[in-house]
Amino acid sequence: MSRTRVLAAVLVATLFPAACGSAGTAPAASAVTVFAAASLTGTFTELGEDFEAANPGTRVVLNFGGSSALAQQIDRGAPADVFAAAAPVNMQQVVDGVGTAGTPTTFARNRLQIAVPRGNPGGITGLADFGNADATIALCAEQVPCGAAAEKVFEAAGVTPRADTLEQDVKAVLTKVRLGEVDAGLVYRTDVAAADAEVEGVEFPQADQAVNDYPVAVLADAPNAAGARAFVDHVLSGRGRAVLADAGFTAP
């Protein structure tokens, strides 16, 4: 008897917030929902906290993921206010899909860097080592932006990479480097900066061949257009630029 009651209580406890949550997804004016590229995880979390502190009562809901997956979710009707992509091509998907309010603005640039586990056990010095069959290498799959950028730099360097794994996003490449499972991976400078306890960066000259522009835009059907505009302004502000620069981004 008491067991059933406990079970019922647990059920109610688990179902109730869920029910409230789903009722609350059409956000009140106080929530700004931001879909941002996985490589913005650190900076946008910080900017979100800033924004919440500067606008009491406003909540920033952040959803990080691969830019193309996010673009698809938005085009399929995900209730987002702001979209920040790691590549203009993904922003274009949304411009062509549900549309944006105004032209997207480039707010940051990122470039690739070689990430190696601390101590560089594989002795990686440049892109040429990626063609070495003895080194264990992780790259992004060509379907995701970091993979497309990697292709460009390898072409510029005249190196055919011998990857052991083609990961689904840049964070997955970073994880493999962090855990020491691979000798090197190609990630963004910002990813190296974010993991500098476990990961070292190796610069290479061809990185200039694949500079990534990060566009941000308010979505045309943003449930909270005013909040979205304010958040984008915050990203473009001096404070926003400083946070982005700290994380390894360069200004556009």
Partner: peptide, 27 residues
């Protein structure tokens, strides 16, 4: 699979991995 074995065509790319990556560019 993708976390432990990674993704490389012919070696570790199983259908679910191929599906996931295809979803990125060509739903």
């Amino acid at each position: 699979t993708i976390t432990f074995a990674g993704n490389f065509p012919g070696r570790t790319t199983t259908m679910p991995l191929a599906v996931y990556l295809a979803l990125e560019t060509d739903p």
